[in-house]
C-alpha cells in the first residue's frame, strides 16, 4: 500500500528510522525484540494518518515525525500484549515476541514500549493530545476486556460487535488523524472532521480485517485462516449467519461453535460455510457503507493533494485483500 502514501513517502521512511533509532536504548534483549517487531513490517497506517493530518496545519516534518512514531509504538505495545493474551505464535508471517521470548518478557516489553511512547508524547506539552490518547488507551482496554468476556458467546448482536471494533481499532485510527492535526495547530473544525473520518475508516478497516480472516490465504494473512474463530472471537460474518442464515445453517453453527473445545475439523467446516454464504458480501457491504461515510467527511475538507490521498486510502481499505 506504499503507493498510497507517496505524499509522505520520505517522512514514513524517517518514522521507520526514528523508531529503529529510538528503540536502540535499553536492555539488549529489549532492543532485539523491538528490531524483530519492526522488521515484521506492518501497514504503518497510524503514523501515515498522523503525517497526512498534520498537513492541514502548520506542517513541520521534524516536529511531527516523533509523534507519528509514538502512535506506532502504542500500536506495537498493544500487539505484543495481544499475542500473549491470544497465545499467538505467528504474526505477519513471523514468530511473535511471545513465542520467541515468553510471556513475562513480552508483557514487560509491551509496557516498556508504552512508556517510551508517553515519553515522546510528553514533549508536545499538549494536554489536548494527552487527554485524547489517555481516553483512547482506556477505551482500547475496555474493548479488549469485552472481547474476551464475550468469547465463545454466540448470542451477540451487531451492536456488541461494533462496540468492540470501535475500541479495538477505530479509536486509535481516529486519534491518529486528530492528533496530527492538533500538533500542527490545524483548525478545530478540521480536527473534528478528521476524527470522524478516522473513526469510519477504522470501522471499515476492522470489518474488512475480520472478513479477510475467513477468505484470505494463510500466506497473505501472515497467520492461520480463521484465527479469530479459534480464539472464540465472534466477528460480523458469524453474527450475520447466526442471525440471518437459514435454520439448518444456524443449527450447524451452534453445534460447531458452542464450545471452546470445538475441534479443528469443526472450525474448518465453519470457515468453509461462511466463505460460501451471504455473510461475506453482507459484511463487505457494511464495510463499504463505513467507507462511504468516511468519504462524505472528506467533502468538507479543503480540496487538495492531502484530501486526495485520504480519499485513495479510503477506497483502498474498501478493496484491500491483505
Amino acid at each position: 500500500m506504499n503507493h498510497l502514501f507517496y505524499e509522505i513517502e520520505g517522512e514514513l521512511r524517517q518514522v521507520e528510522e526514528y523508531l529503529l533509532k529510538y528503540v536502540q536504548a535499553g536492555h539488549a534483549d529489549l532492543r532485539k525484540s523491538f528490531v524483530h517487531l519492526l522488521r515484521a513490517g506492518g501497514k504503518r497506517i497510524r503514523p501515515a494518518f498522523v503525517l497526512l493530518a498534520a498537513k492541514y496545519g502548520q506542517y513541520n516534518s521534524s516536529k511531527i515525525i516523533p509523534l507519528a512514531a509514538a502512535l506506532e509504538l502504542i500500536h506495537m505495545a498493544t500487539l505484543v500484549h495481544d499475542d500473549v493474551i491470544d497465545s499467538s505464535i505467528i504474526r505477519r508471517g513471523r514468530q511473535t515476541v511471545k513465542a520467541k521470548y515468553g510471556n513475562n518478557f513480552s508483557l514487560h516489553s509491551g509496557d516498556f514500549l508504552f512508556a517510551k511512547a508517553l515519553t515522546i508524547i510528553e514533549n508536545y506539552k499538549s494536554n489536548h493530545i494527552n487527554q485524547l490518547l489517555a481516553h483512547v488507551s482506556v477505551e482500547m482496554c475496555q474493548g479488549e476486556l469485552e472481547q474476551i468476556a464475550s468469547a465463545y458467546k454466540l448470542e451477540q448482536n451487531i451492536r456488541n460487535y461494533f462496540y468492540r471494533i470501535k475500541r479495538k481499532t477505530s479509536l486509535l485510527i481516529s486519534a491518529s488523524c486528530q492528533i496530527g492535526a492538533i500538533a500542527a495547530q490545524a483548525d478545530p473544525h478540521i480536527v473534528k472532521t478528521l476524527g470522524r473520518y478516522g473513526h469510519y475508516l477504522g470501522m471499515a478497516f476492522q470489518i474488512t480485517d475480520d472478513v479477510l480472516d475467513f477468505i484470505a490465504d494463510e500466506k497473505t494473512l501472515g497467520k492461520p485462516v480463521g484465527s479469530d474463530l479459534r480464539q472464540g472471537i465472534i466477528t460480523l460474518p458469524v453474527i450475520y449467519l447466526l442471525n440471518c442464515g437459514n435454520e439448518e445453517m444456524k443449527k450447524s453453527l451452534w453445534e460447531k461453535l458452542n464450545s471452546p473445545a470445538s475441534s479443528q475439523d469443526d472450525l474448518h467446516d465453519v470457515v468453509e460455510l461462511i466463505k460460501q454464504s451471504e455473510a461475506i458480501p453482507y459484511s463487505l457491504d457494511i464495510a463499504g457503507r463505513y467507507v462511504e461515510k468516511a468519504l462524505k467527511e472528506l467533502e468538507v475538507l479543503p480540496a487538495n493533494e492531502i484530501t486526495e490521498s485520504l480519499h485513495k486510502l479510503a477506497v483502498f481499505i474498501k478493496r484491500r485483500q491483505f
Partner: peptide
C-alpha cells in the same frame, strides 16, 4: 502532565529491571 516524562521514564525503568 508536567511529571509525565518523569513517570514514563519510571515505568520504562521498572520494566527494564523486570527483564
Amino acid at each position: 502532565d508536567q511529571y509525565l516524562a518523569y513517570l514514563a521514564t519510571l515505568i520504562g525503568n521498572i520494566h527494564q529491571e523486570h527483564v
